[in-house]
Design a binder for these strands. Structure first.
Lengths: 168, 168
DNA sequence: TCAGTTATTAGAACTATTCTAAACTACTTG
DNA sequence: CAAGTAGTTTAGAATAGTTCTAATAACTGA
């Protein structure tokens, strides 16, 4: 048995580097009607068919009030706890899944047992820093993917994920 | 001993539909020196720094003797059991991880808790049929990705994964 | 052959996530 | 605004996938 690299919980990291790319994304995100204050968020949840409960609003605020983010369930759970707005872990999972199903979040699976929820639901792709489990967006505007074969017959396109894996 | 990778560049003029892409991949795989018989596989394992134990050879045969494949640990474990060549689940996991680390396999994570090991280690991408968990290869020859931003400073490119998700 | 290293194994442990069923709360109607 | 009720939350149990432990077995070079 070889011992393999330590898998630190690099936590959700709100990133921060990548000056230009990130600010581009931020702009995008802020223009989005998702950003609102608590009552706006409640309305948004209602639209999505979800009752704006105390728990869901608390989570939505953490997710959508700042800039774009990538969170894990555990990370978000730690945050609500820290914010003295306790929500059970099961509820965090439920809410993340519901938000994703409602199109408010997008799930990105980067490694076995590592799945992030991305508040940026627009077209974009990801950098994943394998050595420290950091995930960063980059807009798809610049990127063109040409020559994709047609989907297997009988299937329809759902989406195209591009993950650029890098290491430090 | 490091030429088994990233050598799949020339190949196929026209691509057209999905079926012909698949057969293109099969041809490729058969030409590969990975396809050998038991003694050849043993040599291959030794080259990779792995003792050719009964268990590893049994697994290598299942993996590399036919055409290209996508396996899960559980699936492969079921196969060795069915072939009356029992190997413990722990050993299946160990071997898959070692084969991957040695560059004999590539791991593809398609969904939380769903990770496949792909015997095709050349350049190619994937279709994933979300509705029934099917994974298919397609060669990267036809696909061009232009305009990828530079990796975050201090990092070097590891690889680019493209997963085209479709549903039935 | 034999020593020494490396590999295998069953089962426990661990991690991430989902389920259960009881308690609770937001929305509706009267 | 008092209930009714349907949707929601919760702790804890359960599950799934994978890794670890430490005892046993097997490969390899001399």
């Amino acid at each position: 048995m070889q011992n393999r690299e330590a898998r630190r919980d690099a936590q959700t990291g709100r990133a921060g580097d990548f000056a230009s790319l990130q600010s581009g994304i931020r702009t995008l995100h802020m223009q989005d009607d998702m950003s609102g204050t608590a009552p706006e968020l409640a309305a948004r949840l209602r639209e999505a068919g979800l009752r704006p409960t105390r728990q869901r609003v608390a989570l939505a605020r953490l997710l959508f009030e700042g800039g774009p983010r990538h969170v894990t369930a555990e990370g978000l759970h730690a945050e609500v706890k820290a914010a003295r707005n306790p929500v059970s872990l099961a509820t965090v999972y439920n809410a993340l899944n519901q938000f994703r199903d409602a199109g408010l979040l997008r799930e990105v699976v980067v490694a076995p047992g590592r799945s992030y929820f991305d508040t940026n639901t627009g077209h974009h792709h990801h950098f994943f820093v394998e050595t420290d489990n950091e995930l960063h967006d980059f807009p798809s505007d610049e990127v063109t993917i040409a020559g994709l074969p047609a989907p297997p017959k009988g299937t329809k396109l759902s989406r195209v994920d591009v993950i650029v894996r890098v290491r430090r």
